[in-house]
Computed example of a mutant assay.
Amino acid sequence: MNQQPIGYMDSGVGGLTVVKESLRQLPNEQVIFIGDQARLPYGPRPADQVRKFAWQMADFLLSKHVKMIVIACNTATAAALDDLQSKLDIPVIGVISPGSRAAIKATKNEEIGVIATEGTIKSDAYKRSIEHKDPHAHVLSLAAPKFVPLVESNAYKSPIAKKVVAETLRPYRHTDIDTLVMGCTHYPLLRPIIQNVVGPKVKLIDSGAETVNTVSTLLDYFHLGNSDFSHAPQHEFYTTGSAEMFDTIARDWLQLRHLQAHHLDLEGA
């Protein structure tokens, strides 16, 4: 039995899509989440800068004595996962590999679309991961930089969101993709709109949700799971931005009525 918390990091509120799945699959595990809203979006930033930000968040989570870190951000996974894994002595998990595996499993014709931030697309991380696992797969990558601001401004249910998603995904209209990876943890909040645009025949892959399956497996493998059911875990949420804005989105998405985030200052944030 290990009662230490699991740490989750993201550029903003998008990582809450991973936390939501964690609360469902791993209800006995304490969550400590940090969203770097003051410095988002990460997508247009240089990889070295994103790596620096990821280390700052990792250091904060380590100060909370977490037993595992989940990089609940595709851009940060592409930039920092290998570095954190090589230098930390606790498991560090990213969202790209689980999302890639799920896409390969779901596709019937090996035509896979990937939507993500500019940084993730530029890194080619999904394309390399998918084609390494399945050399016959054909990956069509598309940057969707306007999606993150829609979510962070709490406009992901608005009419403007429908317009932006439709315009962004237009290049997929005449393709044969049967599977689409939502390669940013913000994107699942736009899932109903994305599904409506690409049509019911395209399977959407939530890379964040798939990542929690990996977390669960590793908890078992390393005997890190918490089996103390005597009290409910006390989750903690931190943001470098507006705690009030964070709370509005987080309460709606996680259905945790009493959730209250804390503002956190990081160097340079």
Rank of each mutant, 00 (worst) to 15 (best):
M1T: 03
N2P: 04
M9A: 02
D10R: 11
D10C: 00
G12R: 12
V18W: 03
S22I: 14
Q25C: 03
Q25V: 05
Q25R: 10
Q25G: 08
Q30A: 05
V31A: 05
F33M: 02
D36R: 11
L40D: 09
L40R: 14
R45Y: 09
P46G: 05
D48H: 14
R51D: 06
M57Y: 09
D59V: 02
F60G: 00
K64I: 11
V66F: 12
M68T: 00
I69V: 04
C73A: 09
N74A: 05
T75Y: 06
A76W: 00
A76F: 08
D82W: 03
Q85N: 09
K87S: 14
L88V: 00
I90T: 07
P91Q: 01
S97I: 15
A102I: 03
A103N: 14
T107I: 07
E111F: 06
I112Y: 08
I115Q: 07
E118S: 02
E118H: 00
E118N: 06
T120Q: 05
T120V: 06
I121D: 11
I121M: 13
S123A: 07
A125N: 06
A125V: 15
K127N: 14
R128N: 06
R128T: 08
I130N: 07
H132C: 05
H132Y: 12
H136R: 15
H136K: 06
H138N: 11
H138Q: 14
V139A: 04
L142M: 09
V148Y: 12
V148Q: 04
L150T: 00
V151R: 02
S158I: 00
K163H: 15
A166F: 06
A166L: 01
E167N: 10
E167L: 11
T168Y: 08
T168D: 08
D176W: 10
D176M: 13
I177H: 09
M182K: 00
C184F: 01
T185M: 03
G199C: 11
K203V: 07
S207F: 03
N213H: 15
T214N: 12
L219A: 03
H223G: 03
H231S: 12
Q234I: 13
E236P: 06
E236K: 08
T240M: 05
E244P: 01
D247L: 09
T248M: 14
A250P: 01
W253H: 13
L254G: 15
R257A: 05
L264D: 02
L264A: 05
L266W: 04
L266S: 02
E267I: 11
G268C: 11
